[in-house]
């Protein structure tokens, strides 16, 4: 598998580390135990298009949000995480 890193270009799978589903959003401070439990443990087992986090540890150390089809392994988009690079969000 090859991933086109927005900073480094097309690179080989071995440079990246897979984390998992990018859909769950960390609940804000003060969230209930149930909400946090869902965030930590509940995942959809998707056959088809998914959004997931990958880390380019063998390159620029950017966390990437990748849209991948679990049936074909086809990657349709690669975006850097909101806080990637030097810029602060909203700055």
């Amino acid at each position: 598998m090859r991933i086109v890193c927005p900073f480094c270009g097309e690179r080989e799978l071995g440079e990246f580390t897979y984390l998992g589903d990018a859909k769950p959003v960390r609940p804000a401070a003060g969230a209930s135990e149930d909400e946090v439990f869902d965030y930590v443990y509940l995942r959809d087992n998707v056959a088809g298009e998914t959004s997931e986090y990958w880390y380019h540890g063998g390159g620029c150390r950017t966390w990437l949000k990748i849209a991948r089809n679990t049936l074909t392994h086809e990657i349709s988009s690669v975006e850097p995480a909101a806080g990637a690079g030097a810029a602060k969000v909203g700055a």
Binding site: T17, L19, R26, Y53, Y55, G57, R61, T62, W63, P80, A81, A82, G83, A84, K88, V89, G90, A91
Partner: peptide, 16 residues
């Protein structure tokens, strides 16, 4: 390092 980068880039991008 990987975990902290995740916190910085994904969870708390609003922090400088």
């Amino acid at each position: 390092m990987q975990h902290l980068e995740f916190c910085r880039q994904v969870l708390f991008p609003e922090l400088d």
